[in-house]
Computed example of a mutant assay.
Amino acid sequence: MTARIVVLHGVAHDLVDRIREVRAAGDVPLVGDDRWPDAQRAAVHDLVRDARPPRGAAWASLTSGSSGTPRVVLRTAASWERSFPAVSNLLSDPAVPEAERAVVLPAPPASSLTLFSVAHALSGGPRPVFPGDDEGLAAATSFHGTPHALRTLLDGGRLSRLRTALVGGSHLDQDLRAQAESRGIRVVAYYGAAELSFVAVDDGTGLRSFPGVDVDVRGGEVWVRSPFTALGYLGDGGPLRTDGAWATVGDLAELNAGPAAPGPGPGALRLRGRADGAIITASATVIPEEVEAELRQVPGVADAVVFGVPAGGVGALVAAMLEPAPGYPTITTGSLRDVLSDRLGPAHRPRIWFTGELPRSTSGKPARADVVRRALAGEVSRVAG
């Protein structure tokens, strides 16, 4: 019998057993988010209602990409299972008995990184702990989530047994790494994508290939040869492209090819962002993630999203929305210009500034499409001069 895609909704801890049941029946679980607006819920259900996944599909996850348009990514069971031993090694602590290992999963199961950890748990990995489980949180020995979620947990101060944090989804700043490490938490950041799964890991010395993955940079794009790549998409396509055994989603990077090169050592990746998010302004191409990295170094800035605002004659003006750090005075354009004049070239300096709490996806990553929509609709504050 042909497998079906079964959309699940509900409380996170109840979903684990329901996911197990769907998998045992030979069907493909796709976890929804109860916070979806009605239109998004209807669109996802319409997409999967009559769908027949390809042979071998065992998991389905949602990714919004940089455009905000939901896509369903399909993958085999093996494409995740082959990485479980390496992930177990990253999360494990010899001082913690295997039976006591538990992983905090702040993002809902609709997030592919949380769904991965649920799949791992169903195959013998650490027991999942979800928000609201205070007893489980106090006993958790590891973490898997975004930098934003890790910061929130650290600020809450209830992680007495936490020994390892596996952090992905967006940029991890060095101050947050240092804060976690000062509490005895080993931090392993990683770069990946819903379509590619794990690509590279960083223990503090730079991004290097995840075990079993070959990484190459072609024309500025990251290409991987990996046993963890997804089958593809349900319905309309997305950024995943293949060339024989190699695949890419269009992420931009530089590869440090030798010991003489600057950086953390041979084989280290320096990510530059997504090619489809580049801003063309006058005669310059601006990669938002590069500007964001500099903005996060500005005192008083907790996080930032950079985007283009259409402008006749030059293509686009570089704009930025800043999330202020708690306790800092009001940010002004004058103070920003003073700090950034030595860090960014003229074309890369934002001309339009907004401030406020960044909207985030279910996994805790900044929701770029929503930031742009709110800024252009006048729903967020402009930074004063």
Rank of each mutant, 00 (worst) to 15 (best):
G168D: 02
G168K: 01
G169L: 11
G169T: 09
G169K: 07
G169I: 09
S170E: 15
S170R: 00
S170T: 15
H171Y: 10
H171M: 09
H171V: 14
H171F: 11
L172N: 01
L172Q: 06
L172P: 08
L172Y: 02
Q174C: 01
Q174L: 13
Q174V: 14
D175C: 02
L176H: 13
R177P: 11
R177A: 07
R177Q: 05
R177E: 08
A178N: 13
A178I: 11
A178K: 15
A178T: 15
Q179S: 15
A180G: 08
E181A: 13
E181F: 08
E181C: 06
S182R: 15
R186Q: 11
V187N: 07
A189I: 09
Y190S: 10
Y190A: 10
Y191S: 08
Y191W: 10
Y191V: 09
G192W: 05
G192I: 03
A194I: 02
A194L: 04
A194Q: 01
E195Y: 02
L196V: 07
S197W: 01
F198M: 12
F198W: 14
F198T: 03
F198I: 04
V199W: 03
A200Y: 06
A200C: 10
V201H: 09
D202Y: 05
D202P: 08
D202L: 00
D203Q: 13
D203P: 02
D203G: 15
D203L: 11
G204T: 07
G204C: 03
T205K: 10
T205E: 14
T205W: 06
T205Y: 07
G206S: 12
G206R: 12
G206V: 09
G206I: 10
G206F: 10
G206W: 10
L207R: 04
L207N: 05
R208L: 12
R208H: 15
S209P: 14
P211G: 07
V213S: 11
D214S: 14
D214N: 10
V215T: 13
V215A: 13
D216N: 07
D216C: 06
R218A: 06
G219W: 01
G219I: 01
G220M: 04
G220V: 05
E221N: 04
E221H: 09
E221Q: 14
V224Q: 07
V224P: 06
V224R: 03
S226D: 10
S226L: 09
S226P: 11
P227Y: 10
F228R: 01
F228D: 11
T229S: 03
A230H: 01
A230L: 06
L231M: 15
L231E: 12
L231V: 14
L231K: 03
L231Y: 01
G232S: 06
G232W: 05
G232R: 05
Y233T: 03
L234H: 13
G235H: 09
D236K: 14
D236L: 14
D236H: 14
G237F: 01
P239W: 05
P239F: 02
L240Y: 00
L240R: 00
L240V: 04
L240C: 02
R241K: 13
T242E: 08
T242A: 11
D243S: 13
D243V: 00
D243E: 15
A245C: 00
A245P: 08
